[in-house]
Simulated scan of single mutants.
Amino acid sequence: MEVDKPATLVCTVLAINSTDLCYRVCSICERTLADNPINGPSSPCKFCNFNAFNPGSSGSKRLFRVLMSIATDTKVFTVICFDRAARVLFGCSADEFFDFAKLHPFVADNVGKILEGEMFRMTLAKPKNGNAQHLRVVSVFPLRSVFQPAIETLRELYNVRAES
């Protein structure tokens, strides 16, 4: 599907790549921060730490970046779903999901199983970055009236109450 303008279609989730569902960004400017696999989180945002208007150090937060396969009635696509649209699927922030996943094994794999086969109306757009390879999910709307975001199903599965 070559899309010059955003296109809305009805699709089914076939699979979700569960290896890397989120990434860290600066909590102020939302620029991507690199993680060091040995020492954990990298240094704070270089831009915000040296910004004269912001003398304090910046923290970080996580945002969703979900690679998934979807199918329409005629074609299968690999798309990427960033934070705003992914929150509809997950029902929580990426930080909340990450914290939940630290306590409960196989959560990332179970998300794929939970969302597999769900039908959505998705709006897809061409990436603004010329180097990007996948269509972007601009918006997601569940088509099943009893759809539950993944975190709710995971809480039931792991017998965990929602925090207030």
Rank of each mutant, 00 (worst) to 15 (best):
N110Y: 10
V138E: 03
A101Y: 02
F98D: 12
F141K: 07
E96N: 05
R136A: 01
L154G: 05
D95Y: 10
L154C: 02
L124H: 06
L157Y: 13
M122Q: 06
Q133G: 12
E156Q: 04
R121H: 01
H104D: 02
Q148I: 00
K113V: 09
D109L: 13
V107R: 11
K128I: 14
E116V: 03
N129D: 12
R136D: 02
R155Y: 06
H134W: 13
Y158T: 04
G91T: 05
A132Q: 03
K102W: 05
G91H: 02
K128V: 12
A108M: 00
S93Q: 13
M122P: 00
M122S: 05
E118W: 13
V107E: 03
R144S: 07
T123Q: 05
N129F: 03
T153Q: 08
P149I: 06
Y158A: 01
T123C: 11
V111H: 07
V160M: 12
F141W: 00
L103R: 10
F141I: 08
V137A: 06
N159D: 06
N110C: 06
N129Q: 01
V140D: 01
F90L: 15
F141D: 03
F147H: 12
V160D: 04
V160P: 09
T153D: 08
S139L: 02
V160G: 05
G91I: 05
